[in-house]
Amino acid sequence: MIIEAPIAPVASYALRRADDALILGHRLSEWTGKAPILEEEMALANMALDLIGQSRVLYSYAAEIEGKGHTEDDFAYLRRERDYRNILLVERPNGDFAHTMLRQFFFAAFMYPYWRAMMASKDATLGAIAAKAEKEIAYHLRHSTEWVMRLGDGTAESHRRLADALADLWAYTGELFEADADEQALIAQGILVDPETLRTLWTATVSDTLTAANLDMPQAAWMQTGGRHGQHSENLGHLLSELQYMQRMIPGAVW
């Protein structure tokens, strides 16, 4: 079975943010059993569970608005790749630990002020979701910031790996600030926060941390785009083939 994405603006919005959280959460879960040290394995798994938890409440809310009897699982397991609306940053492969931590840092440095601002949303459910997510993301930001500083200011090898990660990931940060026409309408109604208003803060956070990591802030550059319209990199298909495998093999399987 394949289900289509809902088109009501708030449902479609909830789905986009849910997809960000689910895909990044899944990426982090891929570290389980492979992390460099036990302590970080737990940290990565904790962050993965935070994000997957956020995706669940957002999917459930999208299903509720849609009103077709779909569940959170239907959205996670039964959509086609092109119906995923996550930004490309979160589907980037884990790479090495520096890649994973920098990706987390870029995402959390945006989502932390974003969820904080969303707590004042005129949509009470989104406000409540934001209030829960804000505390979790605050820790993701703190943890990833500490690691970015240490990797950049660490050994020659850790610095080189972080510099490589920065070169790879920078072009995927532009999508954090995208808002399509539907989203602009919700912003005008006070239901959503305009991501563009967070750009100054995000840039300052990133600049401060990269400076502490002995890295130069990248210049304005061409930015990747497409995730919000379902145009993904080849990486998402591979990720979904693992994520959706069980429901595809044994439709309707339950514990």
Binding site: L38, E39, M42, A43, N46, Y139, R142, H143, E146, W147
Partner: peptide, 20 residues
């Protein structure tokens, strides 16, 4: 107990390992 590079990361690891 746990292993960590410094005090800040030790505190974060303690949070992640022992207060879940």
């Amino acid at each position: 107990s746990l292993h960590a590079a410094d005090a800040t990361l030790a505190l974060q690891a303690a949070r992640d390992l022992y207060t879940r």
